[in-house]
Design a protein around this nucleic acid. Structure first.
Length: 551
RNA sequence: GCGCCAGUAGCUCAGCUGGAUAGAGCAUCGGAUUUCUAAUCCGGGGGUCACAGGUUCGAGUCCUGUCUGGCGUACCA
C-alpha cells in the first residue's frame, strides 16, 4: 500500500515539475498523531518553491492530479504548513489486517537479506578472567544484531575471536604460578601487575591437587598457562551459555600463525609497499591512510602486535566469502579499525563490507557512585553476578535498550530490586496477559477455538475502537522496524518498538474486553490480540528474552 | 594538541532518512478493580533540546565555532 502511494506520488510530482528525471526525495510516513491520517507526505512543501506556489496551493495541485490514480484511499487532506494526509478506506484497512494476520507466526520476519552471508563477531574476550559487565553489553548487542540479521533473511555466522598466547597470557600464567607457590609459602608476594582475582587461587589449587609440589622449582610456565586458559574458557563458556549466547565458530588467533597466514599477510603488505623497517621494528604506513603516525606491525623483539593478526583475520573472513562482516567492540578499541579497513582496501577487498559497531562503556553505579572497573584488580562485578542478581532476561534487555552511542548506566541498586519499573517485565506482562485472555476464552466460550481463527473467518471491520486501530497500525510497522534495526545495527529500536506495542495493548486491555457477548466481535478481537502476541513473542525471541504465558 | 562518541524534564533515557503541539519510565501529586492478571490504566505539575551563529518553507535532528564529559591517540589487546 505504502509503495503504491509513493509511486503514484512520485509520478505526480514529476509531472508537475515537468521534469521526470528530477528525482526528489519524498517522504511518506506514518504520522505520530493518528488524527493526521494513515500516511502523510511532505511532497507539497518540497516542490512549492520550484513551481512558484505556496505549499498549500502546491498540495492542492498534487491532490487534483493524483485523484484518479489511487484506489483504497478514502480521503486526502491538506494540513498544517502543507502536509498531505491520506486516510485509507475501510476496505484497505481490512486488507492490511488480513495480510498481517496471514503471516502467522512469521510476522515481522522477511527475506530482504536473501541468504547473503554475514559474519558477526562479538564477545571475543581473551581468556584472562571472568566476563565483566562490559563484555555483557558486547555479548547482548552482538547476539541481538546477529538475530536481527537472521530475521531479515541473512545466513548468519556468530563468531568468537580469541588470543590465548602473548604477553597477557604470560602475565596470567605468572599470576597462577605465584598463587601456586603461595600455597606452600605464604610469604611469596604477588606482583603488582598480576591478575588478582580469587579465581586465580582456585586454578592454583587445582594444579596443586594434581601435581603436588613438583612444580615448585620449575621455570617453565606452560602447565600454568594451560590450566589457566582452560579454566578461563570454561568459565567464559558457562557464562555465555547462561546468557543464551552461542557461537558457531571459535577462531583462535594462533591458528593464523600455524597456517602461515601471518607470514603471507606480511608478504602481501610488503609487496604493496605498505611497510618498512625502522628501529628494528616493522612499521605499517598508516599515515598514508590518514592516521597521525605510522604503526608498528612487528616489534623489535620479533613479536607481532595485535594489528598484524587483525589484518590476517579479516583477510580470512573475506576469503570465507562473507557479504557482510560485522565487528562489535567497545569504545576502547576504536583505534584499531581504521588500520584494518585501510589495509583491506589496499589489498583489493571491498572494505564497505566491513561494518564496525562501537558501543560506549557501561558504567556500574552502586550507592550513587560509579564503580571503577579493572580486570587486573578484580574489583569489578562479573557478568555472572549480574545475571544472578537481575535474571538473564533483564540483563540482556538492559544491555540493548539504549542507543549504542550513549553510555549505559547500570544502577546495581535498581537492578537488584527485581524492580517493577523494569521495561522487560512490562513487555513480558503484555504477552502473559494475552495468554490469560486465551485461557479465559477457552473456559467461557468453548465454541470458539483459538487455533481455528484465521484471516478469512474473522471480520476485521468489527475492530472499530481507536485503540484497536492504533494497535493494528503499529503492528503493521513491525517488519519495517526489524529491518531498519538490522540494517542500522541498532537493537534499541526493537526494544522501543516492543514497549510501544505493549503500551498500546495495556491501554486497550484496560478499556475494552476481548471476550464479549458477541461471538463475531470476540473473534475479531482475538485475532487482533493473537497478532499482538505473535509480534511480542517474535520480538522477544530476537532479543533472546523469554515470553512467558504466565507471570 | 589531534581523533571518535556524547550533552534533551529532578534522575535514567527515546526522538527513524530535517516535519505538524519535543516524548516515555522513575520520582512527585490526584484518580480507576462487582468485569479476560492493578507487574496495568487515566489525569496534573515539571523543558532556553549545553551555548552562539549559519543553512531553509521548517532545525533537538544538518554545517561552523565554543564549553563540558567519556574513550582513544603503545614496539598492550
Amino acid at each position: 500500500m505504502k509503495e503504491k502511494i509513493l509511486t503514484a506520488l512520485t509520478e505526480t510530482v514529476a509531472e508537475l515539475l515537468n521534469n521526470p528525471d528530477d528525482r526528489i526525495k519524498l517522504a511518506l510516513t506514518v504520522p505520530k498523531d493518528n488524527s493526521h491520517g494513515d500516511f502523510s507526505t511532505n511532497a507539497a512543501m518540497i516542490i512549492a518553491k520550484k513551481i512558484g506556489k505556496n505549499p498549500r496551493e502546491a498540495a492542492m495541485e498534487i491532490i487534483t492530479s493524483l485523484n484518479n490514480k489511487l484506489d483504497g484511499i478514502a480521503s486526502c487532506e491538506i494540513a498544517g504548513p502543507g502536509f498531505i494526509n491520506f486516510k485509507l478506506s475501510g476496505d484497505a484497512g481490512v486488507q492490511i489486517f488480513k495480510q498481517l494476520f496471514s503471516k502467522g507466526k512469521n510476522i515481522g520476519f522477511s527475506n530482504s537479506g536473501n541468504g547473503k552471508k554475514v559474519n558477526v563477531e562479538y564477545v571475543s574476550a581473551n581468556p584472562t578472567g571472568p566476563l565483566s559487565v562490559g563484555h555483557g553489553r558486547n555479548a547482548a548487542v552482538g547476539d541481538v544484531i546477529a538475530s536481527l540479521y537472521k530475521a531479515v533473511g541473512y545466513d548468519v555466522t556468530r563468531e568468537y575471536y580469541f588470543n590465548d598466547a602473548g604477553n597477557q597470557m604470560t602475565v596470567l600464567a605468572k599470576s597462577v604460578q605465584t598463587r601456586y607457590l603461595q600455597l606452600f609459602d605464604s610469604d611469596v608476594k604477588l606482583d603488582e601487575n598480576a591478575y588478582q582475582g580469587e579465581y586465580i587461587i582456585d586454578i592454583a589449587q587445582t594444579i596443586k591437587d594434581e601435581y603436588g609440589d613438583s612444580l615448585k622449582e620449575t621455570e617453565e610456565l606452560d602447565v600454568f598457562k594451560k590450566y589457566a586458559v582452560d579454566a578461563m574458557f570454561d568459565m567464559i563458556k558457562v557464562s555465555l551459555k547462561k546468557m543464551r549466547v552461542e557461537h558457531d565458530v571459535y577462531f583462535n588467533e594462533r591458528s593464523l600463525y600455524t597456517d602461515g597466514k601471518i607470514e603471507e599477510t606480511l608478504k602481501k603488505i610488503d609487496e604493496l609497499g605498505l611497510s618498512y623497517e625502522k628501529d628494528g621494528a616493522l612499521w605499517f604506513k598508516a599515515e598514508q591512510f590518514g592516521a597521525e603516525k605510522d604503526r608498528v606491525l612487528v616489534k623489535s623483539s620479533g613479536e607481532p602486535t595485535y594489528r598484524l593478526p587483525d589484518f590476517a583475520y579479516h583477510i580470512n573472513k573475506f576469503k570465507r566469502g562473507f557479504d557482510l562482516i560485522v565487528d562489535i567492540f567497545g569504545a576502547d578499541h576504536q583505534a584499531q579499525y581504521p588500520d584494518v579497513i585501510a589495509c583491506m582496501k589496499a589489498m583489493g577487498f571491498d572494505e564497505k563490507k566491513i561494518k564496525v559497531v562501537i558501543y560506549q562503556f557501561v558504567t556500574i553505579v552502586e550507592n550513587g557512585e560509579a564503580v571503577k572497573m579493572s580486570t587486573r584488580k578484580a574489583n569489578y562485578i562479573t557478568l555472572d553476578e549480574l545475571m544472578d542478581d537481575v535474571g538473564v532476561d533483564a540483563t540482556r534487555y538492559f544491555f540493548v535498550m539504549r542507543r549504542l552511542g550513549s553510555h549505559l548506566e547500570f544502577d546495581i541498586e535498581i537492578a537488584r530490586k527485581h524492580s517493577l519499573d523494569n521495561p522487560v517485565f512490562y513487555v513480558q506482562y503484555a504477552h502473559a496477559r494475552i495468554s490469560s485472555i486465551f485461557r479465559h476464552c477457552a473456559e467461557t466460550k468453548p465454541d470458539i477455538n483459538i487455533e481455528d481463527i484465521n484471516a478469512e473467518n474473522v471480520n476485521p471491520e468489527l475492530l472499530i475502537q481507536q485503540e484497536e486501530q492504533d494497535l493494528i497500525s503499529h503492528i503493521a510497522q513491525f517488519e519495517d522496524t526489524i529491518s531498519v534495526a538490522a540494517k542500522t545495527c541498532e537493537p534499541h529500536r526493537l526494544t522501543g518498538y516492543l514497549e510501544k506495542i505493549a503500551e498500546l495493548f495495556h491501554r486497550y486491555y484496560n478499556l475494552h474486553h476481548v471476550v464479549v457477548d458477541d461471538d463475531e466481535t470476540t473473534k475479531a478481537r482475538l485475532a487482533l490480540v493473537i497478532m499482538t502476541q505473535r509480534v511480542i513473542k517474535n520480538g522477544l525471541e530476537i532479543l533472546g528474552v523469554t515470553a512467558p504465558e504466565k507471570m
